[in-house]
Design a protein around this nucleic acid. Sequence first.
DNA 1: CCATGCTCGGGCAATTTGCCCGTTGTTCTG
DNA 2: CAGAACAACGGGCAAATTGCCCGAGCATGG
Lengths: 226, 226
Amino acid sequence: MTNVITIMLVDDHAIVREGYRSLLQKQDNLEVIAEACDGTEAYSQYKKYQPDIVVMDISLPGQSGLKAIERIRQFDAKAKILVFSMHQNPSFALQATRAGALGYITKSSDPEDLIRAIAEVAKNKHTLSADIAQALAMEKLGQEQSALDELTVREFEILRLLVDAKSNQDIAELLNISPKTVSNSHYIIKKKLGVSSDIELTRLAIKMNLVNLLDLVDEAHEDNSQ
Amino acid sequence: MTNVITIMLVDDHAIVREGYRSLLQKQDNLEVIAEACDGTEAYSQYKKYQPDIVVMDISLPGQSGLKAIERIRQFDAKAKILVFSMHQNPSFALQATRAGALGYITKSSDPEDLIRAIAEVAKNKHTLSADIAQALAMEKLGQEQSALDELTVREFEILRLLVDAKSNQDIAELLNISPKTVSNSHYIIKKKLGVSSDIELTRLAIKMNLVNLLDLVDEAHEDNSQ
DNA sequence: CCATGCTCGGGCAATTTGCCCGTTGTTCTG
DNA sequence: CAGAACAACGGGCAAATTGCCCGAGCATGG
């Protein structure tokens, strides 16, 4: 009678986890047996509980979700990971699947879509939410495919930290690599994206939705209202 | 008897539109004659029905709300647009009015405020909800604003060129001064604004509205929303 | 088992930065 | 009108960073 699917939830917001937990528990074939709030914890919890499926957000504080996916897959090549992200940008989906995720759905999907996606992933099948699938399909046709896709997973991760206004040194510490490696990646990223300055890089990142404009603008608001 | 004000509602959620429609219909001088769920439709519906007032959310899928305002105003320079947004951030109000909106009120306002705002806009008067007005006033005093004020005219000019993704050399040529002068100014600007990297500088410039968000976001999203 | 590709970093010249300085104007002001 | 104040400009120079190349260590996939 092991047709019950065990799940680990990874999201940095406890309330969000709670919401999804209650949502998922309504299904009697789903059981949430673990939770984690960041990449590091996700890894250790996975080792401990070995759930059938990991449902995770990739926009985590500190160590990125992508890294966590990789580590989990390294530990268990058969790990089934469903990314559940707020980002509609297909590049995120690409990076996530490249890192080893089986599925990618956006938070704007219907609850049923999440349930359905979990079922698909449980069967070891790839799944994408409709909006992402369409966007990716579009990219396949129009040669308009994003230069972002040429970045490796690591580079993508570093890019996101960079445009989050972190210095090369900060990133080196965060990722436990040499500052020189970061600056090399920084250079390669600029080269691949065809820009020559950090200012262009930032603008490009904003265009590509790597930086949430709302966050950016909201910060300004908070600063001023203090 | 044309003292009835005709209205077009634009919001991506049908349920929300329904709510406001019933709210507005209670006023016997208001009539909702059209609806739209995104920027593109807003534009075509406006052309078709030419309502007295457009009441729209700007957080539409593809973030094309601002763009829609511009297109509508381009078609009809006298179009009266009231933005009805969830964002308390005054920068949104700024961008919206810059794009051509007459009024901006937040969704947290009272229903009466909405009615009142519609009346104001109908009279071709600018209107802001109290919270936004206050926030904008705060910004006038705010520290970051004064940080900008500490820049000299020349520095300000250089800053704008910088965040327009021009290199020190480009700027030197453009202004007929030595690259060294530009780089000195570049340094002073960062110092005065309290940032240490060009990435932070760019983000700050965006926060301060030195960069038009529309320019940045425009093309990036047309791909996805098609 | 070889080719490919990613991650990681060393090396090193070339450039840029950070910070200082002095020169030349132009206001503003007592 | 003398002189203070400040803007604009740019030189100098040590320190830091960038641009570009390289090789090593590992997975991955034929």
